[in-house]
Simulated scan of single mutants.
Amino acid sequence: MENEFRITRTSREIYDRFFDNYSLEQLNKIPPGFNNNLIWNIGHIIVSQQIMIYGGAGLTLMVSDELAGKYTRGTKPEFDLTQKEVDEIRSLLYSPVVRTEEDYYNRVFTTFTERKTQLGFTLSTVEDAIAFNNYHEGIHLGMMMSIRKFL
């Protein structure tokens, strides 16, 4: 599992660079032909990690219900975020990942409800969810790389 956690940490470092390389306006811009923007994708991977892992284990998420509602699967940006809102999302890039790793090694995840993802992957264990989360983050990073070409 150490490799899976290393992949997650590296993924989050890549996402973090978007905050330094793109303006607030660029983070919020939805290019023609896209349904979302850079900041939505970042909010989405933070919320999805929580839902997949903590939600699957029947545990409380480390993100607010409001944040989860804005960035869960099937949502899209309804308005431009303020710098304060962007800063909040950035502040959540690492702490949930660190906590997940700690919780994993402290054996907090004692149960897991099996489910099939929208893409057809079956998640039977928390280990499956952690691995799938890395795949999911890669998909959204690819989307962001496409979006940035139009900014």
Rank of each mutant, 00 (worst) to 15 (best):
E4N: 07
T10I: 09
Q49N: 08
D65F: 04
D103F: 14
D80H: 05
F112L: 00
N134P: 00
T122W: 06
T111G: 10
K84N: 15
D80A: 13
E2W: 00
Q49P: 04
E2H: 05
A57C: 12
R115I: 05
Q50R: 00
T10Y: 14
F19Y: 05
K84G: 13
K116H: 03
F19R: 01
Y104L: 05
E127T: 14
R107F: 13
H136K: 08
G138W: 07
Q83E: 11
H44I: 12
I89S: 01
T60C: 13
T8E: 04
V98Y: 09
G142H: 12
M145V: 15
D16M: 06
A57M: 09
S23E: 05
D128Y: 02
L27T: 08
D128C: 04
L141Y: 09
N41K: 04
D20H: 09
D87R: 02
E85Q: 12
A68Y: 11
S11M: 11
F5H: 02
D16P: 01
Q118N: 12
S95N: 15
I89E: 07
E102D: 13
I42P: 04
H140E: 06
R115G: 08
F19E: 03
Q50E: 15
M52H: 10
F34L: 00
S146H: 08
E25Q: 11
T82N: 03
L81H: 02
N28G: 07
E4Q: 11
V63N: 04
M52W: 10
G58Q: 01
R107C: 15
E2N: 09
E102T: 15
G56H: 02
R9P: 02
I39T: 09
Y15I: 03
S124P: 07
K84Q: 11
L119N: 15
F18A: 00
H44R: 11
F79D: 09
A129V: 10
Y104S: 11
L92G: 10
T60N: 08
F132K: 08
P32S: 02
D20Y: 10
M52F: 15
G33I: 05
T122R: 08
V47T: 11
